[in-house]
């Protein structure tokens, strides 16, 4: 279990993580979703004590990470696939990590097998592909057979087979009662893996709920309507609890009511309707709606001032 209390991180004037509080429960996969630069990696680094919070705190299994006597046996973390000396072999890297906790070499060989690194284990990490580096990071995270597993963008650079493997791994670990916390900026990936979602944007928690309720809550029916007098149509819909957005003089998007009902109202109001298109609401849309206010920073053409939008991802 991971518990964050008013956790904050500021870099100078920029607030990367803004007083977030959340709990990651054992026994399920919790997705940590947000656009690039939203504060996911910074939050995860604070969980394992690499970054010191500017305010608030975070505990894992009831204690700050550094207070555990056997941290690798409590928490396994993949934060950065490149956290490896490039001239050392994967096997020696894992052996050095394992030695700090007296983890036997047999376990090192186990995680190498588990992550499919066998054929390249004795090769220098510098020559690894992104996907292989990712597998090595996951192997390191699993070394201590930890009760809590934190994976930052674990499917980055993996081939489809690898992506599927990570999904099964995450679900398998959760079904054993472990706490699994994984981040992504892809809603589609989360939809397939996570049971619970914590959505973060610009350092703040936007949503923290079971994945189904996030989809249901945001995914109302949306219909695109072209009509000659849209205002009259919207006036007729006033009692139906809809939200609408006028995109062009004769084009509106209406959310919250079935297309058939719109047609009925249009007929009653004698409005000419010449397009009535139900828009598919995907998970991606639900996510975009959730975060649209939080990503405006990224949506315009990059300018000199823009790199400030993503201060923490590339570290």
């Amino acid at each position: 279990m991971i518990e964050a209390q008013a956790l904050s991180k500021r870099y100078g004037a920029k607030t990367a993580v803004d007083a977030v509080s959340f709990t990651v429960q054992p026994g399920k996969v919790t997705g940590f979703l947000g656009p690039n630069g939203a504060g996911k990696s910074t939050t995860m680094r604070m969980i394992v004590g690499l970054d010191n919070p500017s305010g608030g705190g975070v505990t894992v299994n009831g204690r700050a990470y550094a207070q555990h006597t056997a941290p690798l046996r409590e928490v396994g973390a993949l934060l950065d696939a490149k956290a490896v000396h490039t001239k050392r072999s994967a096997y020696n890297h894992l052996r050095a990590m394992a030695a700090t906790h007296g983890i036997p070499n047999s376990r090192v060989k186990d995680v190498i097998e588990l992550t499919g690194l066998g054929p390249v284990a004795k090769k220098r990490v510098g020559g690894f592909s992104l996907g292989m580096g990712q597998r090595l990071g996951i192997a390191a995270a699993l070394l201590g057979d930890p009760h809590t597993v934190i994976l930052d963008e674990p499917v980055n650079g993996l081939d489809p087979e690898g992506v599927q493997w990570v999904r099964h791994l995450a679900k398998g670990l959760a079904s054993e009662g472990r706490t699994v916390f994984l981040s992504s900026h892809l809603m589609s990936e989360m939809a397939l893996t996570a049971d619970h979602l914590i959505v973060i944007g610009r350092g703040r928690i936007i949503a923290d709920a079971p994945i189904q309720s996030i989809i249901d809550g945001q995914g109302k029916v949306r219909v695109r309507v072209r009509a000659d007098r849209p205002q009259d149509l919207l006036g007729g819909l006033a009692g139906e609890g809809v939200t609408s957005q006028v995109l062009e003089p004769e084009l509106v998007e209406i959310t919250g009511v079935e297309p058939r009902r719109i047609a009925e109202i249009a007929l009653r109001e004698r409005v000419l309707v010449y397009e009535l298109t139900p828009l598919q609401v995907s998970l991606e849309d639900a996510y975009m709606q959730l975060t649209q206010n939080e990503v405006e920073y990224h949506s315009h053409t990059p300018t000199a001032a823009d790199p400030a939008a993503a201060p923490s991802e590339g570290r």
Binding site: P26, N61, T69, A70, R73, G144, D195
Partner: peptide
């Protein structure tokens, strides 16, 4: 929503379980 957690039989005893040798 802990009621949705599958297979409680696999749940490990915690938090007083002994994690094993430390640093």
């Amino acid at each position: 929503a802990t009621s949705t957690t599958p297979a409680p039989a696999l749940q490990r005893p915690r938090p007083d379980r002994n994690p094993g040798p430390g640093v």
